[in-house]
């Protein structure tokens, strides 16, 4: 069953049109990757889903049309966004950042245990618990952004370059955690990645975007063996 269905999505920043009728589907429980070069419209696609840019077209989430809803209402349906640039609350502490992630949840007890769970996934964040988040390193802020999104207990996570700024070892660890969360808690994920090889390893399904349109789609394995994808995005 489709959790997210996008039909004919157009988006523009002022006069500059970025998406020209994008179509894609994300199956319940899956990890789907959006691949493409810089400027293809990947980040804009994620922003469009959260109503952070002006769009035209249809977006259905969990059986409900959301393209006219406000960002905060979409979030309240269970869509967590790890934004481009990490979106850290720089002057608040690490713990406050995490608590804000669970701000809309009513189940306060589970929020507490989720907080502990995040510190379990990323022990560095526990060490930095009381520290002003602006003083965290780029990689730590990236972990914070991912955990803040998880604190929502989302149905769908939109991940904009989660590997950005992380050391290779940490990227592997992070992707392992994402896979575990996807399998154990059935959180669906829409992943935008520059690192196509890692993205295709993690994702079940992928769409290739060029200049605001989907040009190719298929299971990750199909795309991995596609010659043009291999040459242009995997580099061998």
């Amino acid at each position: 069953m489709a959790l997210l269905e996008v039909k004919g999505l157009h988006a523009a920043y002022g006069q500059t049109r970025v998406l020209h009728g994008l179509d894609f589907v994300l199956e319940q429980g899956s990890i789907t990757a959006l691949l493409g070069a810089n400027g293809a419209g990947k980040t804009t696609t994620l922003r469009s889903l959260c109503a952070m840019v002006k769009t035209q077209g249809e977006v259905s989430f969990d059986g409900r049309r959301i393209e006219r809803m406000a960002t905060e209402d979409i979030v309240r349906l269970g869509v967590a966004h790890v934004p481009d640039g990490r979106g850290t609350f720089l002057n608040l502490s690490t713990e406050e950042n995490l608590r804000l992630g669970g701000y809309v949840r009513r189940d306060k007890k589970t929020v507490e245990s989720d907080l502990e769970r995040m510190f379990g996934y990323f022990p560095r964040l526990r060490e930095r618990r009381r520290q002003q988040a602006g003083t965290l390193s780029g990689g730590e802020q990236q972990m914070l952004a991912v955990s803040r999104a998880l604190m929502l207990a989302p149905k769908l996570m939109l991940l904009d370059e989660p590997s950005f700024g992380l050391a290779p070892l940490l990227v592997r660890e992070l992707f392992g955690i994402l896979r575990a969360i996807n399998q154990r808690e059935h959180v669906s994920m829409l992943l935008v990645e520059q690192n196509a090889a890692m993205a295709l390893d993690l994702a079940d399904h992928a769409y290739l975007i060029e200049t605001g349109r989907v040009v190719l789609q298929g299971s990750s394995n199909d795309l991995k063996s596609n010659d043009s994808v291999r040459r242009s995005y995997l580099g061998y």
Partner: peptide, 22 residues
């Protein structure tokens, strides 16, 4: 929590919307 949300909204409105703060 409301006080925290107000501080968050004051310093980073974009991220605040992304965690569901009005």
């Amino acid at each position: 929590p409301l006080g925290l949300a107000m501080r968050a909204a004051a310093q980073n409105p974009v991220s605040s919307r992304l965690v569901g703060i009005r």
